[in-house]
Design a protein around this nucleic acid. Structure first.
Length: 233
DNA sequence: CCAGACGTTGTT
DNA sequence: GTCTGG
DNA sequence: CCAGACGTTGTT
DNA sequence: GTCTGG
């Protein structure tokens, strides 16, 4: 599972890595963040009339049919194994795929027994940015049609493989830049061609480092979140 | 036909 | 919205 | 994901 | 325990 991540790469570098048209509006989206938590606004990249655009939306997908948005567990992850069938996700998988830019994420490792969990920060060896496979949705209030629609998103996850299994058994799907166009193509509406993108891959370009529980508190921010620290156990 | 569910994680 | 259960 | 709150009555 | 907030 992936329940926290970072996006601290300078905006200009992100705009280049994601092949976005630069604009003042996009620059504002990419303020450096070390502790992005569920329900917060996050930048995602989608196609808008054929061009990639970056927009902010709530992390925690709200199905369009939801009566009370925000009720229940937030849908921050979608299992790749079932995403094409689940009512909450299947329409978004067909027509509303997006990239969720990140440059690292956190996973909490359970100790054998009870009690403390050890957070790890997982990032590229070169600390560069990448993109999670993500979906977005648009929710409109039925009681108040004049209210602003709420856009929200979720990231697709898969089975962890390789060294990552020692930390956690699930991991986010990280897309190769060569696959960005296929993932974003709204004309492509069958799940078949998308399945290979979900294949669990050994991410040899990624490394994990233990960090302090400072990151646990969602309001804690800054480089201290990713400082290396001796493991708790 | 209408009513009710619709998600993930992890733990037991 | 769309599917399942009754 | 983790942290933190979680209730009512009545009185001032 | 379970729900809400970030």
């Amino acid at each position: 599972m992936c329940g926290r991540f970072t996006l601290k790469t300078p905006a200009r570098d992100l705009i280049a890595a994601l092949d976005l048209a630069s604009s003042d509006r996009q620059l504002g989206l990419f303020e450096p963040r070390w502790n992005i938590a569920p329900t917060q606004q996050v930048p995602v990249v989608r196609l808008d009339g054929g061009a990639r655009e970056a927009v902010a939306m709530r992390w925690g997908l709200i199905p369009s049919w939801s009566k009370e948005p925000g009720k229940g567990a937030p849908l921050i992850n979608a299992r790749s194994e079932t995403v094409a069938e689940k009512p909450s996700f299947r329409t978004a998988l067909k027509r509303r795929r997006c990239l969720m830019p990140a440059d690292g994420f956190y996973e909490w490792q359970e100790s054998g027994g009870k009690g403390a969990k050890q957070p790890f920060y997982i990032h590229r060896k070169d600390d560069g940015p990448f993109a999670f496979a993500a979906l977005w949705e648009c929710w409109r209030s039925k009681e108040d049609p004049a209210a602003a629609p709420v856009e929200s998103c979720t990231l697709v996850n898969t089975e962890a493989v390789g060294w990552m299994t020692e930390i956690h058994h699930r991991m986010p799907v990280i897309l190769e830049p060569k696959d960005f166009d296929v993932w974003l193509d709204p004309e492509l509406q069958e799940a078949g061609p998308l399945a290979p993108l979900f294949a669990p891959a050994e991410h040899n370009e990624l490394v994990a480092q233990p960090v302090s529980t400072y990151v646990n508190k969602a309001t804690n921010e800054g480089p201290r979140c990713v400082e290396v620290q001796k493991t708790l156990f």
